[in-house]
Structures are given as structure tokens and as C-alpha cells.
Lab assay of single mutants.
Amino acid sequence: GIPATNLSRVAGLEKQLAIELKVKQGAENMIQTYSNGSTKDRKLLLTAQQMLQDSKTKIDIIRMQLRRALQ
């Protein structure tokens, strides 16, 4: 079985993952909103794209940590 310490770690990672998935969803929504907007929305679009990139990276890292914890 999986050690108890790993189980609480997994629960924490799953919570983090859920949050990051919401951030990713929000960033994707912002990108959709701003991509057909005016030029003043360009900065917001770039910010949203950066957020999305960061979020995807975090999600990958969390998933990797989850896999390790579940081994």
C-alpha cells in the first residue's frame, strides 16, 4: 500500500491541482475575451497568455509529484 504520509501529500497535491486547473480555465477564458478586443486589450491578452503558460507548467509539475507520491 501507500504510506499515510504520502496519502496526505496526495490530498494536498490534488487540492493544488484543482486550483491550478481553475486558474488555467480562467486564463483561457481571458484569452478568448481579449483576443478579439482592441489594442488596449493587448497587454491583458499577453498577461493572460503568460498566466496560462505558468499554469500549464505548474499542472505538469503537480502531476509529476502526484505520480511519484503514488508509486
Results as ranks from 00 to 15, higher is better:
K24F: 12
R42C: 15
A69K: 02
Q65L: 14
I31C: 05
Q49M: 12
I61W: 06
E28A: 03
M51K: 04
Q65G: 02
R67Y: 11
A4H: 11
T39H: 08
R68G: 06
G12R: 15
A27L: 10
L7Y: 06
K40F: 11
A27V: 13
S55H: 01
R67Q: 11
S8M: 06
Q25K: 13
K24E: 02
D60H: 12
E20D: 01
Q50H: 05
Q50R: 14
K24R: 10
K43T: 09
A4G: 12
L70G: 06
R63I: 13
A48Y: 08
A18Y: 07
R68V: 14
G26D: 15
R42A: 13
G12K: 15
A4K: 13
T47E: 12
M51Y: 03
D54T: 10
S35F: 11
E28H: 07
A48S: 02
G37S: 08
I59S: 01
I19H: 09
T33L: 13
N29M: 08
M30N: 04
L70V: 07
L17E: 00
T47D: 11
V10K: 04
Q25T: 09
K58Y: 01
N29R: 12
M51W: 04
L44A: 09
E14Q: 15
S8Q: 14
R42I: 10
K56P: 00
K24I: 07
V10Y: 04
R9V: 15
E20L: 14
Q71G: 08
L52Q: 01
K58Q: 05
T33N: 08
V10P: 02
N36Y: 13
D41E: 04
L70T: 06
L46H: 08
A4R: 05
L45I: 04
Q32A: 13
K24C: 13
Q71I: 08
D54S: 07
A18C: 14
R68L: 15
A11F: 05
R9N: 11
A11S: 05
S35Y: 13
N29T: 08
R63D: 02
I2C: 15
I2D: 07
G1P: 06
A69N: 04
D60G: 09
M64S: 09
K56W: 04
T47Q: 14
K24V: 04
L66A: 00
Y34F: 09
I62M: 02
Q53R: 14
G26Y: 12
Q32V: 10
Q25F: 05
R68S: 11
Q16M: 13
L52W: 06
G26M: 12
T5Q: 10
L21R: 03
Q49A: 05
T57N: 13
I19A: 13
R42M: 13
R67D: 12
G12Q: 15
D41W: 02
G37W: 01
R9A: 12
G37I: 03
T5H: 14
M30G: 02
N36I: 08
I2N: 13
R67W: 10
S38Y: 07
Q50T: 08
R67H: 08
Q53T: 07
P3A: 05
K56S: 08
N36P: 04
Q32K: 13
I31L: 05
T47P: 02
R67V: 11
Q50I: 10
G1M: 08
Q16L: 12
R42P: 13
G26L: 13
S8W: 07
I19W: 05
G1I: 10
L7S: 12
D54Y: 05
L17P: 00
S55V: 15
Q16D: 05
T47G: 08
L7Q: 09
L52H: 01
A69Q: 03
A69E: 11
Q49E: 06
Q65H: 07
N36T: 13
V23F: 10
T47W: 06
L13K: 01
S35K: 07
M64V: 08
L13R: 00
Q71S: 11
A27Y: 12
T5D: 13
Q71M: 11
L21H: 02
D41R: 03
N29Y: 08
I62H: 01
M30E: 03
Q53W: 04
L17F: 02
L46D: 04
R68M: 13
Q16Y: 04
D54Q: 06
I19F: 10
Q71E: 09
L44H: 06
E14M: 15
R42D: 14
Q50K: 11
M30R: 04
S8R: 06
N36S: 14
